[in-house]
């Protein structure tokens, strides 16, 4: 029997497969499809201090091997998550991570404090791709100083394992990765969506109501694997890799490039059982290739020098 368990600093997972924030609701929506307890964990929809209605439609557009979205961080708010969603997940043997965002540092801290110590919560993932209204709307994650500041503030606000989800919309992801590491992050998630745009040439209008949106799906996988490899060679803290993962072979690319765990995102929309299927496929791969533990593979990429 192969060992699928992994540790990302203080976060212990029975297997390295999680579901990405924004693609898995609050987990409960997938109960009709498979036993959530078969996963290593799930990451909630991004939570803000108060509920948010999100952006007006059109919110999504399909693009080659991917999709753009501008949902606008619609969510039930942290209070409803704690009272209505989290208690229903407690009986599953897997890690529930809360994804957190705010428009100011104080909002991030407010949400982290409310989540701290919540029964059944295994950790917090900061979504730093949200515009920082106090700094002219530049996303926290695009500015190493703002990123370090918000990470340090959240670090003080919670004793839970703290992950920072890096934005790929930067010149060099190693800079923001190091900033998050130095500010006290336990692990990094990478990557969030790439900013993209699609145009309806008949109407001569943007397809999305908000003009631009976040690109996800297999189209971004090579970019995300590259950034995982770059980051693995730049920081000491463990990584959680994501970007267009649909099957075990995709997940293994991230693991070989240095990710200790992976998140399945857009694929959950297409094949609701994707993440659960991936756990089984990964076990088969390890057995067929004679590995005892998935940990042997993390960052084991052989590069000719």
């Amino acid at each position: 029997m192969v060992d699928l368990s992994v540790e990302l600093g203080p976060l212990k997972l029975k297997n390295p497969v999680l579901t990405a924030s924004g693609t898995f609701g609050y987990g409960l929506e997938f109960e009709p499809f498979f036993d959530l307890g078969s996963l290593g964990g799930i990451v909630s929809k991004g939570l803000s201090p108060r509920p948010r209605h999100g952006n007006p439609p059109q919110r999504i557009a399909e693009t080659p091997a991917g999709m753009l979205n501008t949902i606008g961080l619609q969510n039930v708010g942290v209070d409803a998550f704690l009272s209505e969603k989290l208690p229903k997940l407690e009986h599953y043997d897997m890690a529930v991570l809360a994804n957190v965002f705010g428009e100011t540092e104080a909002e991030y801290v407010e949400v982290c404090k409310k989540l701290d110590g919540a029964p059944g919560l295994a950790g917090i993932e900061l979504n730093v791709s949200c515009p920082n209204v106090e700094c002219g709307g530049i996303a926290f994650g695009n500015d190493p100083r703002a990123l370090a500041s918000v990470t340090a503030a959240c670090r003080k606000a919670t004793g839970l394992p703290l992950l920072v989800k890096l934005s790929p919309n930067v010149t060099d992801i190693r800079e923001t990765a190091r900033a998050a590491e130095d500010a006290g992050a336990d692990a990094l998630s990478l990557v969030n969506t790439f900013v993209g745009m699609a145009i309806d040439v008949e109407a001569r209008r943007p397809v999305l109501n908000r003009v631009s949106g976040g690109l996800s799906g297999p189209a971004i996988r090579p970019l995300a694997v590259h950034m995982t490899w770059q980051t693995y060679n730049a920081v000491k803290i463990p990584l959680m890799g994501m970007g267009g993962i649909t099957c075990a072979r995709d997940a293994l690319e991230f693991i070989l490039a240095g990710a200790s765990a992976v998140q399945v995102g857009t694929s959950n929309f297409v094949t609701p059982t994707s993440a659960a299927d991936l756990v089984n496929e990964l076990r088969d791969y390890l057995e067929q290739h004679g590995f005892e533990s998935v940990r042997e593979l993390v960052g084991s990429l052989q590069v000719e020098s």
Binding site: F24, G25, H53, I60, I71, Q74, N268, F269, V270
Partner: peptide, 26 residues
């Protein structure tokens, strides 16, 4: 409406409606 999942998680297919409280929501 364009939708990615069909079962309520992608939030891509919303339309504005009047809630029971009179407020407009998606």
């Amino acid at each position: 409406a364009p939708m990615a999942c069909g079962f309520g998680v992608c939030l891509g297919c919303v339309v504005p409606v009047h809630g029971d409280d009179g407020e407009v929501r998606f």
